[in-house]
Amino acid sequence: MISFVRASRMMSLLLHLQVRGHVTGAELARLLEVSERTVQRDAEALAASGVPIRSTRGPAGGYRLDGGYRTRLTGLGLDEAGALAFLGLAGPAAQLGLGSLLEGARTKVLAGMTGEARDRASATAARFHLDPVRFFGTSEPVPCLPGVAAAVWSDRRARIVYTVRSGATSTRDVDPLGLVLAAGVWYLVALRDGARRTYRVSRIRTVEPLPDPVRRPSGFDLAGVWAESRADLEREKTAVSVTLRIAAHALPRLREVLPVHGQSLLPGAPTSEWVELTVPFESAEWSFTALLGLGAAVEVMAPADLRTRIAGELSSAAAQYRDGGRRGQDPG
């Protein structure tokens, strides 16, 4: 008797052949997450049951269906249907543990299309790609993401240990409402003591599911709530205003480190080589770090304590390089 797991795998193999036409054994093994020997056994079992599978050997070998054979057993399972929300987001789906479900759902959808519609879908996928991670960066580690996602999926409350910006940790019981991927960073939107909160998933150290169901607000709209949360964050009161003189070529780099409400203060087409302006920063510490990174392309005019601090840091760095150069020279 064929087990449910094997039957499901054999159906997936059949659907891949129906969608792709000719597939190598190695590719099928990768898609089904089994060995090539297992693919061969499953193909032989399908052939023995009357499915016209043909195999060829050699470098260009593989498996195909003869005679335009098609199966109509393409119904989506509940989990596969849920995974369809991540079409075009294979990376995030894999982080959530939905990679195989998404691939299975995608294959079934393509198998149910006409040849022309399938070609159009394939052509679209070949021309458009969504990459949610910023340039020169990698996705930050989120070891607790599967646990958080499980709580979101099951609508169960959770107890999380969370690291705040100071480095301290606290334990919080929350009602997980949804997960948001923004610029490659995962956020959990949740209720805590009835108030809405947003948690950066990378700062969650542990997650423990609780038996109580989530108290989800009536008519909750995750996209709308996230837009409000983001707007609130971007409208936060400026902690420090800095007057500076900056080279025109460094303005794009300055834009990257300013809050949203400060970016509109930058001139779009400066008419001189140097520009003087006053811009906001979210904190005094961030203004120091960000402006120090611009080096000689910027001069802080005010506040005086920030100007003094940056000047001291640059002076110390210059002395370190000078001393290091002398240490590397041969004596005498």
Rank of each mutant, 00 (worst) to 15 (best):
A149V: 00
A117L: 15
A149F: 13
R134N: 02
A121N: 01
V133P: 05
R156N: 14
A125G: 08
G147D: 10
D119Y: 11
A126E: 07
R118V: 01
C144F: 00
A117P: 06
A121M: 08
A151Q: 06
A125S: 13
A125V: 08
T138D: 04
L145N: 05
L145I: 07
P143F: 03
V148F: 05
P141V: 06
S122I: 13
A117E: 15
L145M: 06
R118M: 07
P146C: 06
D131G: 11
R127A: 14
D131T: 12
R157W: 09
A126T: 04
V148L: 07
R134L: 13
A126P: 01
G147V: 02
F135Q: 01
E116M: 10
R156E: 14
H129I: 04
E140I: 12
G137N: 05
P143V: 04
P143A: 02
A121Q: 06
A150M: 04
F135D: 04
R120N: 12
P143S: 05
G115P: 00
R118Y: 01
A126N: 05
F135N: 00
S139Q: 08
A151V: 02
V142W: 03
P132K: 03
R156Q: 14
A121H: 02
P132N: 02
A117T: 14
T124M: 12
G115C: 04
R127E: 13
E140P: 15
A151C: 15
A117S: 15
A123W: 02
F128Q: 02
G137H: 07
W153L: 11
A126K: 03
R134Q: 05
G147H: 09
P132R: 02
